[in-house]
Amino acid sequence: MLVVSNLHCYYGRIHALKGISLHVKSGEIVVLIGGNGAGKSTALKAISGIVQAASGTVTFNNNDITHISPDKIVMAGISHVPEGRRIFPRLTVEDNLLLGAFTRRDSSEIKKDMGKMKELFPVLANRSKQYAGTLSGGEQQMLAIARGLMSRPSLLLLDEPTMGLAPVIAQDIYRQVIYLNKEQGLAILIVEQNARIALGLAERGYIIETGRIMLEGNCRELKQSNEIKRAYLGKDYREVWE
């Protein structure tokens, strides 16, 4: 469905992505794990066209979308939920959701989807006229995901959806993510710093370090890898090496 091959990106002179290749099959949850500044978010931004790729290609459903504008990419069916739950704070919850459906023209269907979002995330239902900035962190993240779903994507890019949230709320959010994947067949590419959660969630994973993919594979195998245990799962050194 999504195939990224040998993607290079620069921020000015900084070489942020040094030839990333990854793919997401339809109906799959794939996770991208890495530390700060590894290039996880940049990879997502390059897919959704916010950051221009210097070389390499991104194809989606066999169409080359490498140099296509972000609005066309949304229309093609990729929705990007940015990190840090960047909702529009001075707009109402309802307006935020409507903005998610900005590229669509079928207003009656949009209305139906608004109803669905309120079922999926009940906390949003009785707050539709409230300013989004007054929601709690967890509610804002749910709004950000709901807003991302309003464009009716076939692939959802989630950038650190649980950053700074209480574990209970993080669990709640991942429960919804799994539901979306299992029940609606939505393909999801998640960027996550918390390797333990991420590996438990996805089928396949990629480990990214300083702009390169260091490891990839089935999540069950990745969890067993000593390298990962040491660097991301915080296992005791002795347990790993002795």
């Binding site: 959704s48 949304v74 940015p82 909702i87 529009f88 409507l98 903005l99 900005f102 807003r147 464009s151």
Partner: peptide
């Protein structure tokens, strides 16, 4: 209208407005 909503999105955060597919 939709135009006004796009403007408000740009005002609040124009990068995120791009994520929404707003030109």
């Amino acid at each position: 209208s939709k135009v006004g909503r796009a403007w408000a999105a740009i005002r609040d955060n124009d990068t995120v407005a791009m994520f929404m597919g707003i030109n």
